[in-house]
Design a binder for these strands. Structure first.
Lengths: 245, 245
DNA sequence: TCGTCACATTGACCTAGATCAAGAATCTTT
DNA sequence: AAAGATTCTTGATCTAGGTCAATGTGACGA
């Protein structure tokens, strides 16, 4: 029963796990990292959750549907998006291991979520989770800190969408993704790209073609290296060159 | 001493104020609306806050500076923005009466804020406010609900920035602003536009010229009416025509 | 092993919105 | 009320990135 908590309790998720505050800062979103959960609470948590798996392209939940559950992703990656009636799509984020989904505890989902790779997650009933928060204020405090950090990330994304060029958008995306993978897996030589070029475009407000052209250009200029065993893995040798704010 | 709380406690801010949940949904951000604060807490709140005023263009706080205070806007409007080193600017939001600033309770400000009009606000020391949250979990609950709603709004803005045309952006902006003014002031015949065209452009990822052209076009097509006594007031007769999601 | 299919790349061309450049309108200061 | 400074509008032109079309490249099931 405790396997499902590997992502929740493993301090390897948080390189700066000295204090809870540091964790909030560096964006690690597992509730229990840095001592937010006590041992007895961990047991309670295990009792009210269950492990659930999703296949590639399977839907975790859909926009506007009543929100039944809260998820903590254990393995795999998830695409979070909003659709316009005419089919235009905006991806609002990608969830990686350790990330929380449904932290707003709202009545209905504000976006859809589906699996980019096989996914395992730790699933809680929203109402049970919500009740537990009432009893454990420090958990709520942690959740609020996570939500606030999410808000900051969303505002950063607004800058990228509104005021960055295509090349800057792709660079910022890669830099951000490398940073996040660094927390899941200390080796940051390669960045896995579980999403398609179309997904990247829909995240950055670009077309597939533009994303492809920018990646090709960066590879030609040796800023990145696309690893030979597939287009979904990048070597990030010199993307620091693009990292000035 | 209680005048400063007009925005905080007045239920007129919240047309759907039957329950706290409704308020979270409709976006009203005053902590005490819908019963989140008890009478004795209101008194405690008054003791730990003070009224503060800002002139037009005066700075409330700046990005990256240590965050000392939490604000609840009582009157006037505030511009929230991030600057890139080369001067490009992204406005991440406009705060209207009733809105909260600093709800993330983070160590440093993640954006700058300055007054578009004369502003009065209710100011709390961040540390005192934070301590009060530790003692009043239901207040924290409300704050989390407010932050979650902010996150939802930010994600909606991501759709607008990433996947909408210039005309749709301006229309969405006006519709959203009318909705928000409707809560502050029941009369929604006119929308005050305290911000410049440049500000609107920096919020929507457009240039001044494009914003101006779109407003002119909408006025020509009778979708909006720019009220004769100044360019900073709009009549919104038929903007519903643009409201399909 | 081949055929299929979804994904990715590349090139040619096009257009929404940016940029540049005057003016006109509106606020501010005295 | 006049002068000066912003802000706003409008037109002419340009370009970053979109669109369209063709080709390449794995991945996978029969």
């Amino acid at each position: 029963m405790s396997v499902q908590f590997s992502a929740l309790i493993s301090p390897v998720n948080c390189p700066n796990h000295g204090t809870e505050l540091d964790c909030a800062h560096c964006g690690v979103r597992s509730l229990s990292v840095c001592g937010a959960l006590h041992d007895d609470e961990l047991v309670a948590f295990e009792k009210m959750s269950k492990t659930i798996s999703f296949n590639v392209r399977e839907t975790l939940f859909e926009q506007d549907e009543p929100s039944e559950c809260v998820y903590n992703i254990t393995t795999g990656s998830v695409r979070l998006y909003k659709l316009l009636p005419d089919g235009r799509r905006q991806i609002v984020g990608f969830a990686l291991p350790g990330d929380f989904l449904g932290l707003a505890l709202s009545e209905r989902n504000v976006f859809s979520a589906d699996a980019l790779t096989p996914v395992t997650a730790c699933q809680f009933s929203r109402s049970t989770f919500s009740e537990m928060l009432d009893e454990k204020p420090h958990l709520l405090r942690r959740l609020h800190s996570i939500a606030s950090h999410e808000l900051t990330l969303a505002q950063d994304q607004m800058v990228i969408l509104g005021r960055r060029t295509a090349e800057e958008k792709v660079a910022a995306f890669l830099i951000g993704l490398r940073k996040r993978w660094g927390r899941v897996n200390a080796s940051n030589l390669h960045i896995p790209l579980p999403m398609t070029r179309q997904d990247i475009g829909d995240f950055l407000g670009l077309t597939v073609e533009t994303v492809s052209r920018m990646l090709t250009r960066m590879a030609r200029e040796k800023t990145i290296v696309i690893v030979p065993d597939g287009v979904r893995l990048l070597d990030v040798a010199r993307i620091e060159a693009l990292a000035e704010c």
